[in-house]
């Protein structure tokens, strides 16, 4: 039940933070394993969503810190990362445009790690500022400042693309 409710969300979040589908899959499995352990030890959290998000963000942070996978990723592109070839472009791609999409992704990747996390949780996961602060172990003021810088940077990239 918990897995069904949170699997897709966590996988998307981890993929966004790590930039690697295979790594994201590994991290999500690791997160659910920790959840299972916590439950079997009688330490099940009251709010599974917030708990899983916090553990996932920390796991992604650990992976990024380890850094080894990044070198592997730069050497070769995993087959899961390759976009599926479609006969016709998706409506969203037509509306946005390839160049804009690339610029947005590039701008996101150049954000500092903390700003990426804040933006992903606040705007993609649509969590409240207080939930983001709780998940990342930051004060709400710090979350807002990180978010402000991230928004300014990403909007700047979008303006440049126009």
């Amino acid at each position: 039940m918990i897995v069904t409710a949170h699997y897709g969300r966590l996988r998307r979040l981890c993929r966004l933070l790590l930039g690697d589908a295979q790594e994201a899959e590994d991290v999500v499995q690791e997160v659910f394993l920790k959840g299972h352990e916590a439950e079997s030890l009688g330490r099940a959290p009251l709010d599974w969503g917030a708990w899983l998000t916090r553990v996932a963000v920390n796991a992604c942070r650990d992976r990024r810190r380890a850094g080894g996978w990044m070198r592997l990723r730069l050497r070769s592109t995993h087959v899961d990362d390759l976009p599926l070839v479609a006969d016709t472009p998706a409506p969203s791609d037509v509306a946005i445009g390839e160049d804009t999409r690339r610029r947005i992704w590039a701008a996101f990747r150049t954000l500092p790690r903390r700003q990426q996390e804040v933006f992903a949780l606040r705007y993609i996961e649509e969590q409240s500022t207080s939930d983001v602060a709780l998940a990342l172990g930051l004060s709400q003021g710090s979350v807002k400042r990180h978010l402000f810088r991230a928004l300014r940077h990403l909007r700047g990239a979008l303006e440049d693309a126009r």
Binding site: L16, D81, P83, S92, I96, I104, W105, F108, R155
Partner: peptide, 14 residues
């Protein structure tokens, strides 16, 4: 729009 791109489109292949 930015959130939708990051959420719904694949990251361009490096």
């Amino acid at each position: 729009l930015i959130a939708a791109v990051l959420r719904d489109t694949p990251e361009p292949v490096t």
